[in-house]
Write a protein that binds this DNA or RNA. Structure first.
Lengths: 227, 227
DNA sequence: CGCCACCTCAAATGAGCGTTTGAATCGCAG
DNA sequence: CTGCGATTCAAACGCTCATTTGAGGTGGCG
């Protein structure tokens, strides 16, 4: 409960540091608990207990439990979208403005997959985002449904890479590809371990990334009877 | 509140009918509300109000809210698995014991997709199952993680159809294919409508089924550098 | 009819929830 | 040292929740 004060810090910034420390501890604890157990299952008391701060901290610093949830969601999706956009931008530069399907899919898949790595600091963030995507209500749901600016970049890039494919086919296949990522919850991996009797393990992130890109790329490149 | 008694029924079976009616009304209301808003957001009071029955009905007929949830989950997944197994069995018969990848994937995808049809009585059931898969805790989570007998039939069939592919590759690709279905939530369709500006609509179920099978089949049939 | 098992009902129970409150405490400026 | 704005704290508030209770009603059967 007094951990923040135990850290060796210059006294002249201790006040600001303590504020930042409390907020940061709440954010980290809430993200972890939400990712593991869902929003409604985790109480403000659970969060503040895990963070080692006072019960009132959440309402003081964030206004409400919902606002805290939205704040974490906002931060993490912004981070993820930024990294994805960066990789897409790099791929665009590498390929003279017209990246191939494989490079676009890699930009889409790699960030969340690499974050899911065993010892990555953003490991729980991916689970948090996936959970927020399916359980989120209110403001989160509104953002998810209406803010497609980030997805549009990828859709446009795919349309450019597949000029002969009808646009709606591209949108559908992008929808399928997104489903592949959103299914990477801990519980799904557990089921996969049981089903494959240990043969399929997600520990090798780059191999999994290749598998996913292979699978999705093949789906994008076909020219089926109904395209 | 007295709806059950208003229905014209032979008096000699009214008691049993009323019991069945109450249970059935609770089941239907709970399934619908759970599917639309999630488990934790829906209270027993919401359910009994929607069903037009007394508050205590849930605990009397099912024991607890959790047990009611699990009962619906058990029924719906059993129905879905039965239909999937039936289609797989039919495909197996049609192809002399060795159905091709396309037929296997159709057996996997068609039931939930057809249930999602606009006027299908099981429309909310699919949303319920998807939600239970990601939000479910306790007994549901245990079943999801450990009961893979239903999936194993499909995995074995796919292994038989793809004898040159390493087993773990089949498991991973099945995992990807399952992700494609589980992403078919109402909210995801909404987002797709916005992104595609109305071009991609899920109303034509058979066309969507073809798109999904095309996409997944291509992913299964490749022989990539890391298989 | 009278009994019985079954079901329904309104009311209550007690626990847990998000949030609020007002006093206490902090580092710091005057 | 004193006063001040920002933060932390223990306590409490009001509400909703799942569940329980015990009385009342029901139809079927001897």
């Amino acid at each position: 409960m007094t951990e923040a004060r135990l850290s060796p810090q210059p006294p002249e910034c201790e006040n600001a540091e303590r504020e930042a420390a409390t907020k940061a501890q709440v954010l980290a604890a809430a993200e972890r608990l939400f990712a593991l157990h869902g929003f409604r299952s985790v109480s403000v008391r659970d969060i503040t207990a895990e963070a080692g701060v006072n019960l009132a901290s959440v309402n003081y610093h964030f206004g409400s439990k919902d606002a805290l949830l939205f704040e974490i969601f906002r931060r993490r999706t912004a981070e993820l979208n930024r990294e994805r956009a960066r990789m897409l931008h790099e791929a665009t530069g590498r390929h003279g403005g017209k990246p191939p399907v494989r490079a676009i899919l890699t930009a889409l898949f790699a960030p969340p997959l690499r974050w899911s790595n065993q010892d990555h600091p953003r490991r729980v963030s991916v689970q948090f985002i996936i959970r927020a995507r399916s359980e989120g209500a209110g403001a989160i749901r509104d953002v998810l449904r209406t803010d497609v600016s980030h997805l549009r970049r990828f859709a446009d890039a795919l349309i450019g890479a597949l000029p002969d494919l009808p646009r709606e086919a591209v949108y559908w296949r992008l929808h399928f590809a997104l489903g592949m990522i959103h299914n990477n919850r801990f519980a799904e991996f557990d089921r996969l371990h049981v089903l494959s009797e240990g043969a399929a393990r997600e520990s090798d992130t780059e191999a999994l990334l290749n598998r996913m890109v292979d699978f999705a790329e093949a789906g994008f490149l076909i020219r089926g009877h109904n395209t």
